[in-house]
Computed example of a mutant assay.
Amino acid sequence: MMSLFLIIGLIALTLFPCYLLRQINHSKKVLMQSEEARLQLEQLLAFSEAENPPAPSSMRVTIEINDPLELAKREQPLTKYLSQLAPELIVRKVYEQVASEVESGLKEKSVNASVSIEKR
């Protein structure tokens, strides 16, 4: 009976390291596969970034009014006469008014933004 326990113990002590060695090899194989997948993913990301560069961190919204004098005439009838004398002044005032309305609308929505007028 004692020899049976010894044989079973010897077999268990022999099979257990074999099982552990098999698990180690399997883990190495899975690690190698995941490393290959990571490298392929990095190559794909590098390729897509080269193809499509990332968007700039600061973006701008441009608003162009097609006919600012017509807008001014529609909003205030007095500008009909002033637009003949000083059209540049009327256009500048229209853009300033639009900029202030956009800025107030953004402030209502608690958006931290700066609105400026650029002449090109």
Rank of each mutant, 00 (worst) to 15 (best):
M1W: 10
S3Q: 13
L6S: 03
I8P: 00
L10G: 15
L13H: 14
T14I: 09
L15M: 08
L15G: 09
L15S: 01
F16S: 09
Y19P: 00
L20F: 12
R22S: 09
R22P: 11
R22V: 03
Q23P: 02
N25H: 15
H26K: 05
H26Y: 01
S27W: 11
K28C: 02
K29F: 03
M32P: 02
Q33S: 05
E35Y: 05
Q40T: 03
L41K: 00
L41P: 06
L41M: 04
E42Q: 03
E42D: 11
E49L: 02
E49W: 01
E49T: 08
E49H: 05
E49K: 15
A50G: 08
P53C: 06
S57I: 12
S57A: 14
N66C: 13
P68Q: 01
L69N: 03
L71C: 13
L71I: 08
L71Y: 05
K73I: 03
K73A: 11
R74N: 14
R74A: 12
Q76A: 13
Q76C: 10
P77Y: 15
P77A: 12
P77F: 15
L78Y: 04
T79N: 09
Y81T: 11
L85V: 09
A86C: 05
K93I: 08
K93G: 02
Y95L: 03
Y95C: 00
Q97H: 04
S100A: 08
E101Q: 12
V102I: 13
E103V: 03
G105L: 11
L106Y: 09
N112V: 06
A113H: 13
S114Q: 12
